[in-house]
């Protein structure tokens, strides 16, 4: 009999555990999902914010921009994050789901062309035609004359090129294909600009998230791919210096991305592209990342917490951006972000 009491006790204890945890866990927690482009910055900034505000803990899941938009529209998360503002169809779906959407620019970053070529030190130089050629699958070996010509003095191995790309819907892919479309008419007509595309290169492999692509490049000799700058610099992956439309070879750095952004001081959810910006010293593949929030917050308390969090993120929180090789938002874009946040009704 006492065995039965034991089982009963165990059941009781586990019930009590679940119930108490229900009460204990009730403190404010905000859930967001989306862009993995933002993730290194967000994870650091939200971590610091949580230390300062014990009552606001943020759970951000890096599932890709497409996922962020989907989960936001389905109202399974409190905010979504995407490297591309909602397109008209996505906006229509979101409005049908829960009314107006406020989109706030939160960070600025560069997309680097990273590679794993054995025996190559330093940064390879790539121009527009060569870059497009590689991703179109027309240049298939690292010792191709087109690459060799740009990199005189570097011994390139005879190694097949493997294109590493995102397997999930990604704002990083959008920014990168936006750039390829700008520099290559053939890319524009045959592949186009989107969060997921059909990669034309014969040897191409996909992985999930910026994390996955960076991991793939590190694991695969001969690989070339595109990741957010922070992912490349945190992992000691080699990356290329790209020729911008002013004819200079520019390395992706905080400064060169800021330079690109400064060419277009005003951005809005309808006019956001900052790829292929001319001007001396500007890196050609850059983009803002956006957070999506509902204009009408049904839970006033949560709404206030969200607005407070993002007010901080677009101003003081930007200091953590440079720590992880993102670029602080330019002042006028901070103003734009602030205005957007002010329109939220709590």
């Amino acid at each position: 009999m006492h065995r039965n009491r034991f089982v009963l006790g165990l059941t009781g204890a586990s019930l009590a555990f679940v119930l108490t945890s229900a009460i204990a866990g009730a403190a404010g927690q905000l859930t967001g999902a989306g862009s993995s482009f933002d993730f290194p910055f967000f994870s650091r900034a939200f971590y610091e914010y949580g230390k300062q505000h014990a009552d606001v803990q943020v759970n951000y899941q890096s599932i890709g921009s497409g996922g962020g938009i989907q989960q936001f529209t389905a109202k399974t998360v409190d905010f979504g994050a995407s490297d591309v503002p909602l397109n008209p169809n996505e906006m229509k779906a979101a409005q049908a789901s829960n009314g107006d959407v406020v989109q706030v620019p939160v960070t600025l970053g560069g997309v680097v062309v990273a590679y794993n070529v054995q025996g190559v030190a330093g940064h390879l130089k790539l121009d527009q035609q060569t870059l497009a050629g590689i991703f179109l699958g027309k240049i298939t070996n690292w010792n191709d004359p087109a690459i060799a010509k740009l990199n005189a003095g570097t011994t390139l191995p005879s190694q097949a090129i493997v294109v590493a790309h995102r397997a999930d819907g990604s704002g990083t892919t959008y920014i990168f294909t936006d750039y390829l479309s700008k520099i290559s008419p053939q890319w524009k007509s045959s592949v186009g600009t989107a969060k997921t595309v059909n990669w034309p290169a014969q040897s191409a492999i996909g992985a999930k998230g910026n994390e996955g692509v960076a991991g793939l490049i590190r694991q695969t000799p001969g690989a070339i791919g595109y990741v957010e700058l922070a992912y490349a610099s945190q992992n000691d992956i080699s990356y290329a210096s790209l020729k911008n439309s002013a004819g200079q070879f520019v390395l992706p750095t905080v400064d060169s991305v800021r330079m690109a952004a400064s060419q277009k001081p005003n951005v809005s959810p309808d006019d956001y592209s900052i790829v292929d910006m001319g001007g001396a010293g500007s890196y050609p593949i850059a983009g803002y990342s956006w957070v999506m929030l509902w204009k009408n917050q049904s839970d006033a308390n949560k709404g206030k917490q969200l607005v407070g969090l993002f007010r901080w993120l677009v101003t003081d929180g930007q200091t953590y951006a440079t720590n992880v090789r993102y670029v602080g938002l330019p002042k006028n874009v901070q103003g734009e972000a602030d205005r957007a946040l002010a329109s939220i009704k709590t």
Partner: peptide
């Protein structure tokens, strides 16, 4: 595993 949480639109899901 890769696409379910991110599928946008009724058709895709």
């Amino acid at each position: 595993a890769n696409e379910f949480t991110e599928a946008t639109g009724q058709q895709y899901v």
